[in-house]
């Protein structure tokens, strides 16, 4: 029962956030550029313009227009891109697989590296390797993601010539999806961007997991498990690790927005044909429908992933379910 109530509250919140984002999107549309000029150009007389405005409903009150915008948006109509002359939603979704695969690859790197590295640094804090990792992590946090990207291009593509420097390489079409995971060329193109994108989160998660692990290792129940004579590995991975992962899930949820923002930077440097790159192009061309479509799609992705993260969190942490308060 509590789970259901929690679910309803969470979904209600998600809908609220989406409404706010759509309101922002709509006010942008309302204030940025004149849709009429894009349609008819300069040569049409003022009277005809006014008639057209009336017919298109541009003279209606703000909330009537907003309701219409919302109604269209729910049906998947976010306007037509000025530049591509195609529905903005279609243009954006066409680029979605590229960004998704980049984020997926980066997330894999983050999880596969930060968990072992964090645990290692927590259980052997004096070890030379642990000190090295901690030292490198503060350097890593201080290097902005676009510089990691630029220097990895400079080193691996220009100087050494090992890696391709831009684009996605060969992709395989699977219905509306296209993937670079299935060709060697596509995977090769993915390495540097995914590494660059993960580089900024990696130190953060290593430090977080290390900190949590050290704290959990001092708790009574872990000491008891150790005193009972359980195998150290069992204590570590079965008893301690589970509770370490709780805050990691929360922080992971908070970092999703940041990760999406960093895709814009990474895609710009590598000219990766994803949504972030498209968005910056749209900004330079003042392609308003595309800008709004991007904001709404990204907002939707962000709200959905955050809701899922919260639900997972409730699932793995019974304390939240009982008290209903996130602890």
């Amino acid at each position: 029962m509590e789970t259901l109530a929690f679910l309803i509250r969470r979904v209600g919140q998600a809908v609220m956030v989406m409404l706010i984002i759509s309101l922002i999107g709509f006010s942008i549309q309302d204030n940025l550029g004149d849709p009429l000029r894009e349609l008819v150009g300069q040569s049409v007389s003022e009277a005809e313009r006014e008639a057209l405005r009336d017919r298109m409903g541009l003279n209606d009150p703000f909330f009537v227009q907003y309701a219409r915008f919302l109604g269209n948006a729910v049906q998947g109509d976010l306007g037509t891109s000025y530049f591509f002359k195609k529905p903005a939603l279609e243009v954006i979704l066409r680029k979605f697989p590229a960004t998704f695969e980049l984020v997926l690859a980066a997330t894999l790197i983050i999880v596969l590296v930060s968990v072992p590295a964090g645990i290692f640094c927590a259980i052997k804090p004096k070890h030379i390797g642990a000190r090295l990792i901690m030292g490198l992590s503060i350097v890593g946090i201080s290097i902005p993601v676009f510089l990691t990207a630029i220097f990895s291009i400079y080193l691996f593509s220009i100087e050494l010539g090992w890696m391709p420097s831009f684009g996605r390489g060969d992709v395989v079409e699977l219905g509306w999806w296209n993937t670079g995971f299935l060709t060697g060329d596509g995977l090769e193109h993915l390495v540097l961007p995914a590494f660059a994108l993960s580089s900024i989160m990696l130190p953060l998660f290593i430090r977080l997991i290390r900190g949590e692990m050290m704290e959990v290792m001092r708790t009574e129940y872990v000491r008891f498990a150790q005193a009972k004579g359980l195998h150290p590995r069992r204590v570590l991975f079965v008893h301690a690790l589970r509770n370490t992962l709780l805050p990691v899930i929360t922080v992971g949820g908070v970092q999703i927005g940041t990760l999406i923002a960093y895709t814009i930077l990474t895609e710009t440097v590598f000219q990766w044909p994803g949504m972030g790159f498209l968005f910056l192009e749209a900004v330079n061309r003042v392609d308003t429908p595309l800008i709004i479509a991007y904001i709404i799609i990204v907002g939707l992705i962000f709200v959905i992933t955050n809701t899922i993260v919260d639900l997972i969190y409730t699932y793995v942490n019974p304390m939240v379910r009982i008290s209903g308060v996130k602890g």
Binding site: V254, G257, T258, I260, A261, Y262, I264, V298, F302
Partner: peptide, 12 residues
């Protein structure tokens, strides 16, 4: 909400 939207995203 503001934190999870991330500074950079809001600023961009």
């Amino acid at each position: 909400i503001q934190l999870s939207l991330s500074t950079l995203m809001v600023a961009i």
